[in-house]
Every structure is written in structure tokens, then in C-alpha cells.
Amino acid sequence: MTVDGQLPRWEVFKQDASSKAHAAVGSVHAADAEHALLMARSVFARRPSAVSLWLAPRWAVHEFTREQLAEALATPGTQLAAPMRYRVFIKSSDRRSMAAYEHRGEVVASGTSAALRAATPDELPLGMWLVEDAAVIASAPADAEAWFAPASDKRYKQQSEYAVSVKRHPATREGT
């Protein structure tokens, strides 16, 4: 890294409610784990729907589109790597949304190739990310209240605060 180049990239996964899965929302650039968490909170948790953040450095995130997944599954894998735990994120829909890759569980496997075989459901998903579990950092549960609750009080950020209607002026010809 050079100072005037860019700091390392971290992928950010946000959980909107304890009943929901963490989902990939974007990335931040940061010097270290602590800086990355603070950046992720500022960038992705300015609105109420956040209870937890996971971050992983870019090198620990292995992305496969459906095309790449099909290709990888058709190629015999090597088993040279030591077993490792991966967090599995799956894209299951192309519908309009803020996030597509959602956390579906974990697998332990020797390398990404074996992990893909272990994690791929019967029906080929639209995409899969494998995130090396050992590299993941998370917001502390004890910080959740201080970090995420204040956004709920900032009601001026919500459109319901601006229910102002315009009275039709007789001079306007629309709707005549």
C-alpha cells in the first residue's frame, strides 16, 4: 500500500435484524480492522436497519458467479490445502434489491474448490461467495446499542417526516 494510493479493501456484510442473514452491501478501504469497522459503520449504518457488521479483507473473499461456479464444479479440485472454515453467501434472486449475496451457513473444506462442492445446493445458485472465516472481523455485540440505535432517533432522515402536500393552484392546467 502506498499512502497516496489506496488503503486495502474490505468487503462489508450487514445484518438488518437478528432474524435476518448478513448480506454483502459493498466495501470500504481501511488501514486495519478497527479502522475498517468504523468506516463500515459510517458508510453503511447511517439508517436504522443494522444490528451487526461483518468485514473481511478482500483477499479472503472468493467470488463465483453462476458461470464460474458451473466451471469450477466441472473441474477436478486439488486437496492440497489444510482444512479451513468458510462462511457461505449465496445469491438466489435477480430481483431488485439492495443486497444479493446472503449468509447461508458455513463449511469446512480443504481449499475453495472442495468448499464449493460442499456448499453448492442441488440447484445451482446464481452466485456464491466463500469468505475465509479466520479473516472475518465483526462489530462487538456489546457495541450494538451505541453503534446502531442512534440512527433510529434521527427521524428527519425518514420520508414520513415530510408529509407536505401541494394545494392545486387554479392557474395550473393539469387535470382540467
Binding site: 458467479t65 458461470e67 464460474q68 444479493a100 446464481l126
Partner: peptide, 10 residues
């Protein structure tokens, strides 16, 4: 077909 193209796709 309305599919979304993702980063690693051709």
C-alpha cells in the same frame, strides 16, 4: 431474460 450480470461474468 432479466438476469443481473455480476462482477466475474464474461
Amino acid at each position: 431474460a432479466g438476469e443481473k450480470i455480476e462482477a466475474g461474468d464474461w
